[in-house]
């Protein structure tokens, strides 16, 4: 078995092999591998004895279950109204410059993927972004860049 298959197998052992275990298993894969590769989805389908199309169909419903390759750190800037009113566009512009990639893209060193997200639930402290699971409210362009630099250092 490959690494991924082994990992999926462990997740299935942990969460069980019923359909109800699908979300926790997919979430487990994404937490480690950042996205669901074809190999991972097939492994999940095999473990749960469901069709691969079903796994894909379920995964693509959920914004956080990516099925295309993502960088080691996934940055999601809130784009909904309150953050919009508080200049999320500036934050995005600063990040695009810093990371040298556009929204939806991954940096060439595969360290970062820059995305936008719908309301993250910090409207009183916008603009806000998530880096992986961690939240960074009350951003300024400068602050956003520093946060990214910090992640960059950490992942060296």
């Amino acid at each position: 078995m490959t690494n991924t298959e082994n990992f999926v197998h462990e997740l299935a052992e942990k969460h069980g092999r019923t359909r109800n275990a699908l979300m926790p298993i997919l979430q487990g894969v994404v937490a480690r591998e950042k996205y669901l590769s074809e190999e991972a989805m097939i492994a999940v389908a095999r473990e749960l004895d469901i069709s691969a199309a079903d796994v894909y169909g379920t995964a693509t419903f959920y914004t956080f279950l990516d099925t295309v390759p993502r960088g080691r750190n996934v940055v999601r800037v809130c784009k909904t109204i309150s953050c919009h009113m508080h200049n999320k566009d500036e934050i995005i512009r600063a990040l695009e410059e810093q990371l040298k990639c556009k929204v939806g893209e991954t940096t060439s060193d595969k360290k970062f993927t820059l995305l936008t997200a719908n309301c993250l639930g910090w409207c009183h402290k916008g603009p806000v972004m998530l880096v992986n699971d961690d939240v960074y409210p009350e951003l300024t362009p400068q602050k956003a860049i520093e946060i990214i630099q910090e992640y960059n250092r950490k992942s060296n």
Partner: peptide, 21 residues
């Protein structure tokens, strides 16, 4: 955990999601 879908706050969608769908 959810995985990023506003509609899963709707109760029956939430059940579907918990059922792996």
């Amino acid at each position: 955990s959810g995985s990023g879908a506003y509609v899963c706050g709707e109760e029956s969608a939430l059940f579907e999601s918990m059922e792996g769908k």
